[in-house]
Design a protein around this nucleic acid. Sequence first.
DNA 1: CGTAGTATTGAAACGGATCAATATCTGTGG
DNA 2: CCACAGATATTGATCCGTTTCAATACTACG
Lengths: 240, 240
Amino acid sequence: MSAKAPSPPPSPPALRGIPFIAENSSDSVLLTSAEREQLAQIGVRIRLPARMVIYREESPADWVFAITDGCVKCYRELPSGKRALCAFLFARDLFGLAENGRYTNTVQAVTNVTLYRLPVLQLANLLKQDGNLQFKFLSKVTHELRSSQRRAILINRRDAVGRFASFIAMMANPATASAEAQEVPLPMARSDIADFLGLSLESVSRSATELERSGVLKFENRHLARIVDGARLAKLVAAV
Amino acid sequence: MSAKAPSPPPSPPALRGIPFIAENSSDSVLLTSAEREQLAQIGVRIRLPARMVIYREESPADWVFAITDGCVKCYRELPSGKRALCAFLFARDLFGLAENGRYTNTVQAVTNVTLYRLPVLQLANLLKQDGNLQFKFLSKVTHELRSSQRRAILINRRDAVGRFASFIAMMANPATASAEAQEVPLPMARSDIADFLGLSLESVSRSATELERSGVLKFENRHLARIVDGARLAKLVAAV
DNA sequence: CGTAGTATTGAAACGGATCAATATCTGTGG
DNA sequence: CCACAGATATTGATCCGTTTCAATACTACG
C-alpha cells in the first residue's frame, strides 16, 4: 500500500532470523555479494502490509520469496477449520519452495513485510548453473528441516507452560541470549502462538500469566516480553 | 560387507518410500543412470543388522546415506529420557545431511538394512559441480521438509485413534492405495510408533485395539495390519 | 469515545498419561 | 523341536492437565 521507500523504514523490533543471506559463521550459508547481485537481477523487492495473504495453499507456485524485513506466518487450514501453523519466518528466511508446482502452505504477513520475490523457473535455472549458490539453498532448506523437527519435538511436550517457554526461547535473539532482561518481540497474535504450539488460545494465555506470576517473564505489553529469569526459563525449556 | 551384487536380492515386504532414486513422475527426483553411476563411484554399499545404531547425535557427520532396502528410525534423546522419533525412513530415502558437520539425530536400523554410504565432502563437491544432480537433492530435502511438517500436523491432533489411523495411512503404500484389504507392514515396535506419534505406548495399543474392534483394521500380527474399511480409515485421517 | 476484535479468567469435563497387573511374542539354548 | 526367559504388548483403574464453554476485560482503530 505504501509508496516504495528506497531506504528501509526504522525497522520494527529486532527479530531473530535463521541466517541465510548473511551473518553466522561455520555454515556456508552466506551469500557473496556477487551471488546476491545475481539474485537481485531476477527478483524484485516488494512491500506488503500486515495481514496480507502472500499466497495460498494449492495455488501455482510461481515464486520463491526471501524476507528482507518483517514477519510472516506459514500455515495450513485443516478440514476441521483449525489452522496448523508450521512456522513463523523472519528476515533472511526463505519460503515458497514447493513441490509439484503448487504451494503446500498458505503464507500471510504478520507485520508489514519487505520481500524479495524470485520467479521460480529462473531461480531454478540459476541454481542449476551455479553449484555453489545452489549449495547454499540446499543448506538453508536442510536447516529449515531441522527447525521443523525441533518444532515437532516442541509440540510433543505435554505441558502448556513448557511449550510456551520454549516458544519464547525460540523467539529470543540468540545474539543477545546471555543478556538478562532480554526483550523478546512477539509480533504475532496469541491465537497464532496457540496454533503454532498446538494449544488452545486459553492455555497460551494462562501459560503467559503463569510465567509472569512466577517471575520468569515480564510482559511490557502483549507484543513484547522481557526475560526476567533466564536461568529458570532455560530450565523450563530443557525439561522436555 | 557383501560382495557387490548387481541384481538386488528379493526385497522383503514392500515398504513405502519417498521417491528419490526412482519412480514417481511430475517431480524431477529421478536420478538418471549416469547420475546413479556417479554416486556409486564415490559410495559403498553396506548391509547392517536390525537394531544397529548407524550414527549418533552430535557425532561428526562424515557420511550421507541412501537407503536401498529396509527401514531405519531417526530420533533424538530428550533430557527427560524420552525419545522423540523424527521419522521412519525406507528404501529410496536419504539421511545424514547435517549442518555444522555434526549429526543432529541418532539413526538406528529397525530391520536389516542395505545402505549406500557416501562421503559427505566428496558428495558436496560432486553436487557443486553437477547442478542438475544437486537440484534433485534439493527437491528431496524439500520433500522431507514437507513430510516433517505433515508429521507436526499429525501430532497436533488431540485424539489418539486419529493419530494412529493417520500413521497407518502414512505407512500404507500409495501405489496400492485403492485396493481394499491392503496390507500395511509395520516393521517397527509399538513403542517406536508411540515415540513417533507422541503418545504413550498404552495409547497406541488401545488405539490399535479400537480400530480392530470397530472393523477398520485387522492385525494379522503385530507387524502386519490389513486395511479392512479404507473409507472409514480415510475419514478418520481427514478428521484433523 | 465507542465498537469489534482480541485476550484474560473461571468452572467443568473429557481424554490421555501413568501406575500396575497380566498376556503374548521372540529368540535362544537345551 | 520345544521350553524358557526377557522383552514387548495388552488391558484395567485412577489421576491430572488441557480443552471447552462461558463470561468479562482489554485494546486498537475508526
